[in-house]
């Protein structure tokens, strides 16, 4: 779809893929039975996404892959508001930080009063690739309604030892194993057309 003025209104199933170096702020309003599927790829840039699920049956699926290097400071803010009942949201955020960069992520799900039947999920995974890189994550759940199912998970650390070990037992050097794991790290959230951006970034920074 074409990107025009904020906010975007969704009243049907739609998919947006966003990698705009100049645009940092996005606002989506998803109407009754609308389905938003959006992917963001901030590379050394800030991002502010706000999603309002505004009609019954509205769904949003936000995917975000962030990359930061050198001494960049990234601020990422992704907020989903379940304004009416029976709405569903999902956020999947993954990222890498290297160099002396720092990432500050806030990701929120808000379910106000009297909005029963909502489901909200959020998952974040951040990997530090250098001694001086920092990732700070604040996933927030703000729930004022009883009949909801919400969860969030967040993990920040190095690549998992057991996965590296597994590959090493298969004959890979540690550095090779790391590369292999990193190259597939984003696969579950990044659409095919964006993989080259990530590959380029990795070639320069990992």
């Amino acid at each position: 779809m074409t990107i025009s003025k904020l906010p975007f209104l969704f009243n049907r199933q739609e998919k947006v893929l966003i990698h705009h170096p100049d645009e940092h702020e996005w606002q989506f309003i998803v109407q009754e039975r609308g389905e938003l599927e959006a992917f963001f790829l901030p590379i050394n840039q800030n991002l502010k996404v706000s999603v309002i699920l505004n009609g019954a049956g509205a769904k949003s699926d936000i995917k975000c892959a962030y990359l930061s290097n050198e001494n960049n400071d990234l601020k990422l803010d992704i907020q989903v508001l379940h304004k009416v009942k029976n709405t569903t949201s999902n956020q999947q955020i993954k990222g890498l930080a290297t160099g002396e960069s720092s990432v500050l992520l806030t990701a929120g799900i808000e379910i106000p009063k009297n909005t029963n039947g909502c489901e909200g999920y959020q998952n974040h995974r951040g990997i530090l690739l250098s001694d001086k890189a920092k990732i700070s994550a604040t996933p927030q759940l703000e729930i004022w309604s009883e009949d909801v199912v919400c969860s969030h998970g967040s993990a920040v650390g190095p690549l998992p030892d057991d996965e590296l070990f597994y590959l090493e037992t298969r004959g890979l050097k540690k550095s090779q194993a790391e590369k292999l794991l990193l190259s597939s790290f984003f696969n579950d959230i990044v659409p095919g057309e964006f993989r080259t951006h990530i590959k380029e970034w990795m070639e320069q920074n990992v």
């Binding site: 990732i135 759940l141 967040s154």
Partner: peptide, 17 residues
């Protein structure tokens, strides 16, 4: 709030409501 400034350190958080 999870602040990780060390690449060998691991923070894991899970929450449900």
């Amino acid at each position: 709030v999870m602040k990780n400034e060390n690449k060998t350190a691991i923070i894991e958080h899970e929450a449900t409501t």
